[in-house]
Design a protein around this nucleic acid. Structure first.
Length: 155
DNA sequence: GCCAACGTTGGC
DNA sequence: GCCAACGTTGGC
């Protein structure tokens, strides 16, 4: 089954995992997502989908790079590991709660497309872009092809 | 099933 | 470090 390429935005705190860290390892399992909506978006991902890599909780939050979905969703192993911060005692191997996808480095942007700048372009992005919705804490969200194109044109 | 309490996210 | 917004938990 193939389908048209979809686009996403994924947030990471650079202290925990940055675009530079992804560049270094090449491919990384995107573990630790513990939000059902974000998980469901990952379940909808297919290899080859585009990912905007976003740095949150940092001096200048914003889009810093481009990555690519490199696997279908599969159970996040950290949910089974009692020593992990992401351990979930309610999750079992028979019935895992949390999935992840592998994410592959594509490129680092020449500059950060800051959240400030993105907010300033809200009109061009259209309503309901989850990133700039008040109070939105979603860490994985869909991006339309038009939004993808527009955001990368700002680089 | 309601909702208060609590924990987390993430901008500032 | 603060705190608003939001999701989850658990008592009832």
């Amino acid at each position: 089954m193939s389908r048209r390429k979809h686009y996403w935005l994924m947030k990471s705190e650079p202290d925990a995992f940055s675009i530079d860290a992804l560049k270094k390892v090449g491919v990384e399992p995107w573990n630790g997502v513990r939000n059902y909506q974000a998980r469901n978006f990952m379940r909808a991902m297919q290899p080859g989908d585009g990912v905007l890599f976003y740095h949150s909780n940092t001096d200048v939050p914003g889009i810093v790079g481009v990555a690519e979905v490199a696997s279908e969703a599969y159970p996040d192993p950290t949910q089974f590991d009692p020593k992990s911060d992401y351990f979930d005692p309610k999750s079992t191997r028979e019935q895992p709660r949390w999935d992840l996808v592998d994410v592959k480095f594509v490129k680092k942007l020449k500059r950060t497309i800051s959240l400030d700048e993105i907010k300033g372009r809200a009109d061009e992005l259209g309503d309901g872009f989850a990133l700039v919705q008040r109070g939105s804490r979603l860490s994985v969200m869909p991006v339309t092809a038009a939004q993808w194109k527009f955001l990368l044109s700002l680089e």
